[in-house]
Each structure stands twice: as structure tokens, then as C-alpha cells.
Design a protein around this nucleic acid. Structure first.
Lengths: 179, 179
DNA sequence: ATTCCCATGTAATTAGTTACATGATTCG
DNA sequence: CGAATCATGTAACTAATTACATGGGAAT
């Protein structure tokens, strides 16, 4: 149950409303942890009862009021505690891998068409991450301590997309040379 | 909801009891799709109602009876249909990445100790996969069509572990050169 | 004696998804 | 005029985890 902790990290970086968090979980943080707004609102409610976060209403011009959440001292303690815990090795769960395992029971051409689609998606995402890296981290050697976290997960994104791309290429190569 | 389809793939390869499936999901298939025995029994029940699989009791010596499941024609049709469907891009969900993003809010040494543990786990798993590959697929170029699926997911395992290992090394390098 | 393997399940709970709901403002 | 953005939720459902339950045989 790490959504709580993903929210704590995000709020430790910067206060946010549930809506703001939902957008962050659609973009940067969302590349390694997805969450819908419904789920975020639910969890924020629980976290506020637990005193990990607190909120105050902010009125805005021409916009609905928003409830801005910030992390509490207790929240920071919990985040610190959780960060020192050993991380359980997460099971990777890939529907795509199940399909590749079972490819001989289906229409090979149709499955390979899907592989091409995936390959293109990985390539596009990789290009996006690389553009980001070039823009925000042109000189990784001189990063400040508070930038390292975001930089490292961006690197993880790049490595993950390269990995996805490489696997697609291997699949296509294996089936390509067969015919 | 792809557990059904993972089971269909597994049963299309070879008939099995719920217990057998649970062991397969602990080993080979489990490297890319985890499932507990409780969940497998539940889903098998549903799949039998849907006529995707059928079972018959087999008595054994000195062992409890077992219910051996096999895939039906309808199950094969469903598997074929599903294989041709575009695969939704799965959200990767990594608690470890959340920690790396938030490393500056915790005890850096403790987090890096966890990175070392992970690195070792990736290295061990990689060695295991590579030993498997050397043993079962010494000559990938001459694989038969019905072996390609298993070979490709093993390759995916190898690539994934290398990716995990590479990221750990980058993390350690970034924090290592800092001090 | 105790633990592990074989074998199959139920019950309770938590996490997550999908659908539904509302309402103002801004942009094309 | 319609769609998108801002903003916050509830309700129903599905999937998955954890705990509980049983019972024989084999191995240490």
C-alpha cells in the first residue's frame, strides 16, 4: 500500500490539492505510479484522519475553491520511517508477456502487429523522456541533492523504455528471420 | 483481467490441477504473472462455469485426489480471440522508484543499503535466468515454433534483470561519486 | 515431534476501477 | 454552442491479499 507514500513524497516536495495530485499522477510521478482522482481523494481523506496531512480551503477567482493539502510532522516521520524499510521485490505483471508466451495459440500476424504498436509507443516515450532529460538535466554531474530523486526516476524511465524497445526488437527479429 | 488468459495459456500447454497451476505461477509463468493458489481456485471455478475449461477427478496413490483441468474448444477460441486484441500499455508501478524519488526525505544510507540488496537480488535472478537459457536454449537460432514463446519470455526476464541491475548501478554511482 | 509437500477450498478485508454526479469558467 | 479545464466527491463492483481451515503422507 504505497499510494499513501507516493502522495507523501509528492506533498513533501510541494503542497497540492487532490486535483493537483491527480495531475501529477498523470504526468511525472505517474510514469512509475498511477492513481485516479477518485482513489486519491479517498486516500487523502484517510491520511488526514491519520494526521499525516492537513488541509485548508483556498478561495480562488473564477474557479472553484480548492482544498490544499500539506504534509505534517507526523507525515514526514512516517515518510522517513517508510524510506528506511526494505522494499519488497515487486512482482512484474505483464499481460504482454503472457501473450508472447502464448503466441503459438493465436494468430501470429495479429500478435506481431501488436508488437509493432508497442515498439512505436516505447520509442515515442523514450524520445519524450530524452527530450526532458536534455532540457532539465543537461549536466547530470552537477546536480544538487534535492534534484537527484527526480533525475534518477527519469533515468529509470529511459532505461525502462530502452528495455521495452529492445525486447520488441528481439521478438520481431526472431519471427522475422523465421520466414 | 488477464489471470484467466494466463491460465488458458498454461492449460493450452499442458493440463494441470489448481495445485499444479499454483506451482507454475510460482516458477516459470510467475516471473511475469503472479497468482496465489486461492485466487487460482476461484478463477478456475469461474472459468469452468464459462466452459473455458473442464475438469475430471484423478485418484492417486498415497496422495489426495486431484481435479485435473483441461482447456476446452471454447477456451481455445477465447484464447485466440484475446491474443489478437491490442494489449493495453500496462502502468508500471514501482514502490522502489517512489523511494528513489523521495530519497532526500529519508535516511540516505539506509535507502542505499536497500539499493545494494536489490542489486544483489537482480544479479542472482539474472544468473538463474542465464543458466536456464544456456541449459534449455543453447542454440536459439534453431528453435521450433512451439518453443519460441517460452524462449522469448525468458529473454524478457534476462533483459528486465539487466535493466534493474543497470539502474541500481546508476543510483549507486550517482550517490557514490557525491561523497 | 515437527515441518514440508500434496491438495482444495472459504471468509474477510483492502485496493483499485468504472460509472455516476455536479457545477462554474474558459477556449475555439 | 460544445468541449475542455477546474474541482471534489459517492456508489457499485471487481480483483487481489491475508487469514483461516482441513487432513494425510513423507522426510528429518
Amino acid at each position: 500500500m504505497a499510494l499513501e507514500h507516493a502522495i507523501l513524497v509528492s506533498l513533501a516536495e510541494k503542497t497540492a490539492s487532490g486535483y493537483d495530485l491527480a495531475r501529477r499522477f498523470d504526468a511525472s510521478i505517474g510514469h512509475f505510479w498511477k492513481a485516479s482522482h477518485q482513489q486519491i481523494y479517498k486516500v487523502l481523506g484517510r491520511m488526514e484522519s491519520d494526521k499525516w496531512v492537513e488541509s485548508h480551503l483556498v478561495a480562488q477567482d473564477n474557479r472553484p475553491d480548492k482544498k490544499v493539502y500539506s504534509i505534517t510532522g507526523e507525515g514526514r516521520d512516517e515518510l522517513h520511517r517508510w524510506l528506511s524499510l526494505p522494499t519488497p521485490i515487486e512482482a512484474l505483471r505483464s499481460e504482454f508477456a503472457v501473450k508472447m508466451r502464448g503466441i503459438r495459440f493465436g494468430d501470429q500476424e495479429a500478435v506481431l502487429a501488436d508488437v509493432h504498436v508497442r515498439r512505436a509507443a516505447h520509442a515515442a516515450q523514450l524520445a519524450f523522456y530524452e527530450a526532458n532529460a536534455a532540457k532539465h538535466y543537461p549536466d547530470p554531474a552537477s546536480l544538487k541533492n534535492d534534484e537527484l530523486g527526480a533525475y534518477l526516476v527519469l533515468r529509470a524511465g529511459i532505461l525502462a523504455e530502452q528495455h521495452g524497445l529492445n525486447w520488441c526488437d528481439e521478438i520481431l527479429q526472431v519471427f522475422g528471420s523465421e520466414r
